[in-house]
Nucleic acid binder design. Structure first.
Length: 848
RNA sequence: GCCCGGGUGGCGGAAUGGCAGACGCUGGGGACUUAAAAUCCCUUGCCCCGAUCGGGGCGUGUGGGUUCGACUCCCACCCCGGGCACCA
């Protein structure tokens, strides 16, 4: 409790009162509503939409505080700022709650949204709430279905039986992107299993090259590491396909005339191949082993190998294991007969499911050959250094070099050989250039309830029938029993499943799988521009006005999943003629994680500081200031109760500073002295104006170029300290100048602690709101130092300092430095070897 | 293994070729108070010399280099964090 006995005590900073007051005011003013207009430049600022978990914690808060500071700054700079917010509302937690407590996902989710939104509004972020969207709203997910149908028409959505990643905990399929080292991305200790299921896929691979090439547009605007991660994920690799003919078997086995197709990026090493190795699921294997002697034993071992690969986690670390299956293949270049092996390290999903084994020039092949005593012929020699010999080869040589023992290709460089051998393979018909990708098509079927129903029917007569557009949205039926067991919950709802064929009117079944929720977040930012459009997902012209997103702010977790899918969707939309651009996001910023006790703040671990608790105790401006101050935005931030106390103290101090002077300054006109008047200004006035404008220059730079808001906050603190150190301000400083400096401080504080800034602005006598105030104009003249401290060094060590007027010539500076008595004394008996003079900075006298 | 990012006081961090440690936290001392809280003032990298004013040395993970001058640039290494990983 703060005592109020002292009758002279000035008003105290009351964040609760101030924050409620200004939030109400902003709402009445519709201060953050943005509409398409041509008069001003637009600025689309977006933060990643949250999953409404019910509790807003400091991790969320940091994300939105950074975004809000920039949004408010850009508004002050005169931009027409679009700053929306919505809910990524579909997903497993709602369903899990239904399984656990029997709550309806609709009810559970809307309750959480209400809760989260209330917490969010408590922070006064400058969102245009009219544009709020929720992905579980039929008005939204109906357009997911609409996009799906467009993709189906274009052949971009298709269905196939495929081996999928199955999480037993989620009881659903996961996309490749959702598997982390063989474990579920949501359940860190649940291993993903392999399962064969009919799935819907989106042909993201068709856009692999576009996704790669268009990254050129993102260079500079996106963090390099995100681009690297996406590039790796797409995993484009140039090479060649080469077919090895299967040699006739002695025991009358099959597959003669068949060839094993191998993908390699190093065709130049092909003369060094000592085996051909197949993936355990390779389709040719049964035929190959059909009549081989000892077939029973081989098949038993094969079965064991196949067992192993069920667990992808073991793939990375597992020992290489293989079996020779008793057959041979012919190296088309050398004519050599190579044993055919099956091994666990060759994966069917990549390349052609078969490799040539070149032990001397590949790490894996080397290890494999060591274990199974395969020969290691050397066919590439390093260009310089010791030549390789079989005796000394204790590691593979994997770099490019010069070919040896390679028939007609010996003597060529690897680069030349790759080109020529690929061409020759093509000419002779046993190979051709080939590019392969690591990227797989995006499996989007989920055997779950709380997602977008996939809008297709299965008719006994017509087969697969898309739901016609006019029947969209296909609504999620209410009151579905969710057990988490077995197939999609929708399959148990007869009134949903049983329908009539849109084509023939006969009986049909609905698809019961729902879409991956990453579909929802792949295009939501377009909907913000036109959130209530009932005829189209959005209006072309409106999107054209607002897009691309000028700045996107969010966590690094989404570097691949969300951001790659979004880029893919954008390209599909472009090809559908819905948008006129290829990349949705111009600039991306990944803020660091908020930690508590060294680990990330997250709902799932319960390791959180609730935003509302913090706001209740200190006020949200304090929280904002702290999250901006405690670390540069891209770095992780450790939550510190003492740190936030410090920020709270600062804002109270700032308030008192203003409260002391506001009364007498209210009616005063701002004194913004012109150069002529500056001459007659007092030292104190000049010092205050100088500090204020130096601060303005640096904070503007922080917002425009650096995004280091921690230093912006520090600068505001410095300016406040300067003012405080010049108390009493009414002495030797005109009210006009003091007011000018206080106003500058307020304007600069506005993006970071907006409620308090508004209050201070009002205290200074302004009727109009600060949200609409323009960012102040920096004045070089006022920021300029009259005297600069120049360092005097002798042999690079600081030995003295002097005050000089700025812009002094080098001769003059040096002259003054060496006449400094102390310096003169120190160099008296020495010979000056070199004179270094940096204007306005230092003089370095090198003596020897 | 490969590819990024990072290593600065007791702590978060500042300084991107020119006075290392801005700003904040913590600690210490003082003022106010009956007392405490709050607030305000001083102080706070380490070591040494000096009676005080003051002066000197060391110091940005380690070792080398470039430079009049290096936290900053270059080379090598160590450690921490992240991403990718039998990808042929």
């Amino acid at each position: 409790m703060r005592g109020r006995e002292d009758s002279e005590a000035v008003a105290e900073y009351d964040p609760q009162m101030i924050e409620a007051k200004w939030q109400k005011r902003w709402e009445e003013q519709r201060a953050f509503e943005a509409d398409t207009e041509s008069a001003r430049s637009k600025y689309y600022l977006l933060e990643m939409l949250p999953y409404p978990s019910g509790t807003l914690h400091m991790g969320h808060m940091r994300n939105y505080t950074i975004g809000d500071a920039v949004a408010r700054y850009k508004r002050m700079r005169g931009f027409n700022v679009l700053h929306p917010m919505g809910w990524d509302a579909f997903g497993l937690p709602a369903e899990n709650a239904a399984i656990k407590h029997g709550t309806d996902p609709h009810v559970w989710t809307s309750r959480n949204i209400a809760e989260f939104k209330r917490a969010l509004r408590r922070f006064g972020f400058s969102y245009d709430w009219r544009r709020e969207i929720s992905t579980c709203d039929p008005e939204y997910y109906g357009w997911n279905q609409w996009f799906f149908l467009r993709m189906l028409e274009k052949g971009l959505a298709y269905r196939k039986l495929s081996r999928v990643n199955w999480c037993p905990e989620c009881a659903t399929v996961l996309a490749n992107e959702q598997v982390v080292n063989g474990y579920c991305w949501r359940h860190e200790d649940t291993q993903v299993e392999a399962k064969e299921i009919e799935q819907w896929f989106l042909k993201i691979t068709q856009y692999a090259d576009a996704l790669l090439d268009d990254m050129a547009q993102l260079e500079g605007g996106w963090p390099e590491r995100v681009l690297v991660m996406q590039r790796n994920w797409i995993g484009k690799s140039y090479g060649a396909k080469v077919r090895f003919a299967v040699a006739a078997a002695s025991g009358g086995a099959g597959a003669e005339g068949d060839a094993i197709e191998v993908f390699t990026t190093r065709i130049d090493t092909i003369y060094g191949a000592s085996a051909v190795i197949l993936a355990p699921e390779h389709p040719l294997i049964p035929k190959l082993v059909a009549g081989v002697a000892g077939r029973g034993a081989i098949e038993a071992q094969l079965a064991r190998l196949r067992q192993k690969i069920v667990r992808p986690i073991e793939l990375a670390t597992a020992e290489k294991e293989g079996i020779f299956i008793g057959r041979f293949a012919i190296n088309p270049f050398s004519g050599a007969s190579l044993p055919i092996w099956v091994a666990n390290f060759v994966v069917m999903e990549y390349g052609s499911g078969a490799v040539m084994c070149v032990p001397a020039h590949d790490q894996r092949d080397f290890e494999f050959a060591e274990k199974y005593r395969l020969p290691k012929p050397i066919v590439v020699q390093p260009v310089s250094g010791q030549p390789l010999t079989p005796a000394t080869l204790d590691a593979p040589y994997t770099d490019y070099g010069r070919l040896v023992n390679s028939g007609p290709y010996s003597g060529l460089s690897s680069e030349q050989a790759i080109e020529r051998m690929t061409a020759d393979a093509k000419a002779k018909g046993f190979g051709e250039p080939h590019t392969t990708y690591r990227l797989r098509d995006w499996g989007i079927s989920r055997q779950r309830y709380w997602g977008t129903p996939i809008p297709v029917l299965y008719c006994e007569r017509c087969g697969l029938v898309p739901v016609p557009d006019e029947q969209l949205p296909v609504l999620l039926p209410p009151n579905v029993r969710i057990t988490g067991m077995g197939q999609s919950p929708l399959a148990n709802v007869p009134e949903f499943v049983n329908t009539t064929c849109a084509r023939c009117g006969g009986p049909a079944r609905r698809e019961t799988d729902t879409m991956d929720t990453f579909i929802d977040s792949s295009w939501y930012f377009y909907r913000y521009t036109d959130p209530h459009n009932s005829r189209a997902p959005f209006d072309f012209e409106t999107v054209r006005y607002w897009f691309p997103i000028d700045q996107y702010v969010g966590g690094i977790v989404h570097a691949i999943l969300h951001l790659l899918y979004s880029r893919f969707f954008c390209k599909v939309m472009r090809d559908l003629g819905l948008v006129d651009h290829s990349e949705p996001v111009k600039r991306l910023f990944n803020q660091g994680t908020v930690l508590k006790g060294g680990t990330a703040m997250s709902k799932s671990t319960g390791n959180i500081v609730a935003g509302e608790d913090m706001a209740r105790q200190y006020g949200c401006d304090t929280g904002r200031l702290y999250t901006l101050f405690a670390a540069p935005p891209e770095k992780d931030l450790e939550w510190s109760e003492q740190g936030i106390e410090g920020c709270s103290r600062f804002l109270h101090r700032l308030f008192r500073l203003f409260a002391r002077h506001a009364e007498r300054l209210r009616g005063v006109a701002v004194g913004n002295p012109r150069p002529a008047e500056l001459a007659s200004a007092t030292e104190k006035e000049k010092a205050l104006l100088r500090k204020a404008h130096q601060t303005l220059r640096r904070i503007t730079h922080d917002f425009e170029a650096r995004w280091h808001f921690n230093t912006s906050v520090a600068l505001i603190m410095e300016l406040a300290n300067e003012l405080q150190s010049k108390e009493p301000l009414e002495q030797d400083a005109s009210p006009g100048v003091v007011k000018e400096v206080l106003e500058l401080l307020t304007l600069m504080l506005a993006p970071m602690a907006p409620h308090l800034a508004e209050e201070l602005w009002e205290m200074l006598g302004h009727a109009g709101g600060l949200v609409a105030a323009p960012w102040p104009q920096f004045q070089e003249q006022l920021a300029k130092e009259e005297q600069i401290e120049v360092v005097i060094q002798i042999n690079g060590r600081v030995r003295g300092k002097m005050l000089v007027e700025p812009g002094l010539g080098e001769e003059e500076l040096y002259g003054r430095a060496v006449t400094d008595p102390r310096i003169a004394q120190l160099i008296a008996s020495q010979r000056v070897v070199k004179k270094i003079v940096v204007r306005d900075k230092l003089v370095n006298v090198v003596v020897g």
